[in-house]
Amino acid sequence: MEITVTVNGTGYTRDVEPRLLLVHFLRDTLGLTGTHWGCDTSNCGVCVAWLDETPVKTCTVLAVMADGHRVRTVEDLATGDTLDPVQQGFSDRHGLQCGFCTPGMLMTARRLLDDDPDPSEATIREAISGQICRCTGYENIVRSVRAAAEIERTADQEARA
């Protein structure tokens, strides 16, 4: 069936089978391979992208369910060569090693900071608790999200000054 999904601000109209999962629509149909695909059982969280404003596990959403909706993926975070603060935070604080979990972590972190610009460590840990990282032991991910919050706070203060 024909669906139109606005991904990262661009409308894509494609003919898809109803059984196509959103993660495969993004990766295979649109070639947006930033969103990763791991456990396939809604446990690991590497497939997290936003459906409208909300992070979801795209291995457990059908592409047809996104028809008429917006999707935001990791490809939308940077503006040109300028990294989004969450990406900058992960870069500064070594928030990734292999990088497999990173797109999902970044999309959850972006949503968290949009809702709560100054999250505590406990809040960050809770927010990423549905996502698995086999490399970092999470410490550096938590620091990275805190660093991103600081980057945004500094930018805010400069903008106001």
Partner: peptide, 9 residues
Amino acid sequence: IADPVVRNR
């Protein structure tokens, strides 16, 4: 119940 991302859906 589950985790925050599953709870979103």
